[in-house]
Computed example of a mutant assay.
Amino acid sequence: MLVHPNFDPIALSLGPLKIHWYGLTYLLAFGLFFLLALRRARQPWYAATGWTRREIEDMLFWGVLGTILGGRLGYVLFYKLSEYLANPLDIFAVWKGGMSFHGGMLGVILALILYARRRGRPWLDVTDFVAPCVPTGIAAVRLGNFINGELWGRAADPSLPWAMVFPQAGDGLARHPSQLYQAGLEGLLLFVLLWIYARKQRPIGQVSGAFLFGYGVFRFIAEFFRQPDSHLGLLALGMSMGQWLCVPMIAAGVLLWVWAGRRAR
Rank of each mutant, 00 (worst) to 15 (best):
N6I: 00
F7D: 09
D8S: 11
P9L: 07
I10T: 15
A11F: 13
G15Y: 08
K18E: 15
W21P: 11
W21N: 10
Y22W: 14
G23L: 10
L24F: 12
Y26T: 00
Y26F: 13
L27D: 02
L28Y: 01
A29S: 00
L32H: 01
L36K: 00
R39S: 08
R40A: 03
A41T: 07
R42H: 11
Q43I: 11
Q43Y: 04
P44Q: 03
P44F: 06
A47M: 12
G50A: 03
W51G: 00
I56T: 05
M59L: 05
M59W: 01
W62K: 00
G63D: 14
V64D: 15
L69S: 08
Y75P: 09
V76C: 06
V76H: 12
K80D: 06
S82C: 01
S82R: 11
E83H: 03
N87T: 10
N87W: 06
I91N: 12
F92I: 15
A93S: 14
V94H: 15
V94W: 15
G97V: 09
G98W: 14
S100T: 09
S100D: 04
M105N: 00
A116I: 04
R117H: 04
R118P: 00
R118I: 01
L124N: 12
V126R: 12
T127F: 02
V130N: 02
A131G: 05
C133S: 03
V134A: 05
V134C: 07
V134R: 05
P135H: 08
T136Q: 02
L143S: 02
N145P: 13
G153D: 12
A155Q: 08
D157E: 09
A163T: 14
F166A: 11
F166V: 11
Q168R: 09
Q168H: 04
G170M: 07
D171H: 05
D171I: 13
G172A: 01
L173P: 01
R175S: 14
P177L: 13
S178C: 08
S178M: 04
A183F: 06
E186Q: 09
L188N: 04
L189Q: 05
L190K: 03
L190Y: 02
F191W: 12
V192N: 02
L194H: 05
A198I: 10
R199Y: 08
I204V: 12
Q206I: 03
V207H: 02
V207G: 02
S208C: 03
A210P: 13
A210D: 07
L212R: 07
G214R: 04
Y215R: 04
V217N: 00
F220Q: 06
I221C: 15
A222R: 00
A222T: 12
E223H: 09
E223T: 07
F225C: 13
F225L: 13
Q227G: 06
D229S: 07
S230H: 13
S230L: 13
H231A: 12
L232T: 07
G238F: 14
M241G: 05
Q243T: 05
V247D: 08
V247T: 14
M249T: 13
M249L: 15
M249K: 00
A252K: 07
L256G: 10
L256D: 01
W259N: 07
A260T: 01
A260E: 03
R262D: 00
R263Q: 12
R263W: 10
R265W: 06
R265M: 09
R265S: 07
